[in-house]
Amino acid sequence: MKKTTVTDNDHENVQALAENLRDTIGKFVRAVRCQAGTPTTAQGETLAFLERNGPASIATLAENRGVKHQSMRLVIAKLEENSLITQTPDPKDGRSQLITLTRKGQAENATARKARTLWLSEVLSTRMSARERTLLGEALPILQKITGLD
């Protein structure tokens, strides 16, 4: 296998690409959420995490969001008040509770996801050419590779 040598110039180009990609994707995510009327919140992100990963402890949820346990307890209390989650004893640790999405919580996630998809579909069909949509489709495997979803 041929060994590649990274020059200082290559390194600078990669750093610039990484910064531009990070900035652009961040703006993209914020724009989709904002324009679709589903702005990010601690509650929304917690519901999405539970949907992706299944039941979790408050400690796990706090760690995922990078907040203190007490802060996550406030988020969980609000979600429970709105019947979006339930708490049940953790069978592996009787001192801990597992947080689980309710059907209402699942529906809330689905509604937000649908709103974002509809807004993005509208933008792609009205503001992008067929060629631009093709290019975006071709770039998805690269982005998936970066995020480990491939």
Score class of each variant (00 low, 15 high):
residue 81 E to V: 04
residue 93 D to S: 08
residue 34 C to F: 15
residue 112 A to P: 02
residue 89 P to M: 04
residue 144 Q to D: 04
residue 100 T to I: 06
residue 138 E to Q: 14
residue 12 E to V: 15
residue 1 M to I: 09
residue 88 T to R: 14
residue 98 L to F: 06
residue 103 R to S: 12
residue 64 N to T: 07
residue 140 L to K: 04
residue 107 A to I: 03
residue 14 V to W: 10
residue 58 I to M: 01
residue 106 Q to C: 13
residue 17 L to Q: 13
residue 80 E to W: 02
residue 9 N to F: 10
residue 40 T to F: 13
residue 33 R to Q: 12
residue 121 S to T: 11
residue 67 V to G: 02
residue 27 K to R: 15
residue 62 A to N: 02
residue 116 R to W: 08
residue 119 W to Y: 14
residue 17 L to K: 15
residue 28 F to S: 06
residue 26 G to S: 14
residue 56 A to I: 04
residue 133 R to L: 05
residue 25 I to P: 00
residue 122 E to F: 12
residue 142 I to M: 07
residue 46 T to L: 00
residue 98 L to C: 02
residue 7 T to I: 06
residue 126 T to I: 06
residue 113 R to P: 00
residue 79 L to E: 00
residue 81 E to S: 09
residue 132 E to C: 05
residue 73 R to T: 06
residue 111 T to G: 05
residue 17 L to N: 03
residue 52 R to L: 09
residue 13 N to G: 13
residue 118 L to R: 13
residue 78 K to Q: 12
residue 111 T to I: 08
residue 12 E to S: 14
residue 97 Q to S: 12
residue 61 L to I: 03
residue 8 D to H: 05
residue 148 G to H: 04
residue 140 L to N: 02
residue 1 M to G: 14
residue 61 L to N: 00
residue 14 V to H: 05
residue 144 Q to P: 01
residue 106 Q to G: 12
residue 58 I to F: 00
residue 1 M to Y: 08
residue 10 D to N: 11
residue 114 K to A: 13
residue 62 A to F: 02
residue 72 M to T: 00
residue 62 A to W: 02
residue 7 T to R: 09
residue 8 D to S: 14
residue 102 T to R: 06
residue 85 I to R: 01
residue 127 R to D: 11
residue 88 T to Q: 11
residue 46 T to C: 03
residue 87 Q to N: 08
residue 91 P to C: 07
residue 101 L to C: 03
residue 104 K to Q: 13
residue 80 E to K: 08
residue 39 P to E: 08
residue 121 S to F: 11
residue 119 W to L: 11
